[in-house]
C-alpha cells in the first residue's frame, strides 16, 4: 500500500477536522500551526496501525483531539514571531475569509472558556456527530454524553441570554 498517497488523500479529504480543532484549542496563530503540524505527524505515524475497526473520521477525531488536549498541557512554546507561508500546513486565501457574525464570535468565545474535555464534546456535537459516535470518540457512555450535552447546551444558552441582556 502506498502510505504516502493514502496520507495525502486523508489529509485533503478531512482537513476540516484538524483545522476546526486547532482553531478551537489554540487562539495564537503560531501555536495553531505547530499544533496542526503535530496532528499531521501523529496521523502519519499511526497510519500503519489503522485497522478499520472505527470509521476513519472517528479515528482522526481521536488523534486530533488527543494531540490538541496534550498540546494545551505542554504550555505555549512560541518559537518565532511569525510562521512563513511555506511552513504553514493550512492557509486560507484572503478572499475566502467569511465575514464573522457576532453570534459565531460569541460562540467561539464561550466554547473557548469551556474545560478541555467539554470543548471536545461540544465541537463533536456542533459537527453533528451522533451521541453514539461522540461516545466512541471520547470513550464514555452514551448516557453520559447525553447528560453532558444537555448541561453544556444549558450553560451556553445561559451565556447567550446573559450577553443579550447587556
Amino acid at each position: 500500500m502506498d502510505y504516502r498517497q493514502w496520507f495525502q488523500d486523508i489529509i485533503e479529504e478531512h482537513k476540516g477536522i484538524f483545522f476546526k480543532i486547532a482553531r478551537t484549542y489554540c487562539l495564537d496563530e503560531i501555536d495553531r500551526q505547530d499544533l496542526t503540524q503535530e496532528m499531521m505527524i501523529q496521523v502519519w505515524q499511526a497510519l500503519p496501525k489503522y485497522n478499520q475497526s472505527a470509521k476513519i473520521s472517528t479515528w482522526l477525531y481521536r488523534i486530533a483531539l488527543n494531540v490538541a488536549i496534550s498540546f494545551y498541557r505542554k504550555g505555549s512554546t512560541q518559537k518565532s514571531k511569525n510562521v512563513p507561508l511555506d511552513k504553514q500546513v493550512f492557509h486560507i486565501q484572503e478572499e475566502h475569509v467569511p465575514h464573522k457574525e457576532e453570534q459565531i464570535n460569541l460562540l467561539e468565545q464561550f466554547i473557548g472558556e469551556l474545560k478541555e474535555f467539554d470543548k471536545a464534546l461540544i465541537i463533536l456535537y456542533l459537527e453533528d456527530k451522533s451521541h453514539a459516535e461522540i461516545a466512541e470518540i471520547l470513550g464514555i457512555s452514551v448516557t453520559n454524553v447525553s447528560t453532558k450535552v444537555s448541561r453544556i447546551k444549558e450553560h451556553l444558552k445561559l451565556k447567550f441570554s446573559k450577553h443579550s441582556n447587556f
Partner: peptide, 9 residues
C-alpha cells in the same frame, strides 16, 4: 477557502 501546503505534508 482552505488550502493545504503539500510541501509540508
Amino acid at each position: 477557502g482552505l488550502a493545504i501546503n503539500k510541501q509540508q505534508t
